[in-house]
Computed example of a mutant assay.
Amino acid sequence: MALRYKTRKRLAFLILIVGLPLYVVVAVSVVNLFDRPPIWLEFVIYAALGILWVLPFKSIFRGVGQPDPDAPPRDD
């Protein structure tokens, strides 16, 4: 099922405003369960987690910054 442009845009906004902060809290909490690793390893872990969160939402974020393809053309 393909989502309309407006739906994808609203869903992307919701994911960024609500989902991303929750993901950051969960990621930091999980990493803090273990002894603190060396700073370079901690950086690698957070960088990997920063890339990993967006993979399930790639189709939602694709093209959201572009003009609405379903909108009628404007005469300027």
Rank of each mutant, 00 (worst) to 15 (best):
S59P: 08
A48Y: 09
R62H: 03
S59H: 02
R8L: 04
D76F: 14
R74M: 08
R36Y: 04
V54T: 12
P21D: 07
Y5C: 03
W53A: 00
K9Y: 04
L14K: 13
P69T: 02
R62M: 12
F57G: 00
A48K: 01
V28W: 10
V24L: 12
L11E: 00
D68G: 09
P69C: 08
A48G: 13
L49K: 15
T7Y: 00
K58H: 13
P38F: 11
P67N: 06
I15Q: 02
Y23A: 11
V44C: 06
V31T: 07
I45N: 02
F13T: 13
D68P: 01
L20A: 05
F13W: 15
L33V: 04
R4V: 01
L52Q: 03
N32R: 11
A27D: 00
L14A: 15
Q66G: 06
P69S: 14
P37V: 15
D75V: 04
V31L: 10
D75W: 09
P73A: 14
D75M: 05
P38I: 11
G19S: 10
V30H: 15
A12E: 09
D35L: 02
K6M: 04
V44T: 02
G19A: 13
A48Q: 03
Y23I: 05
T7F: 01
V54K: 14
S29I: 14
P69Q: 09
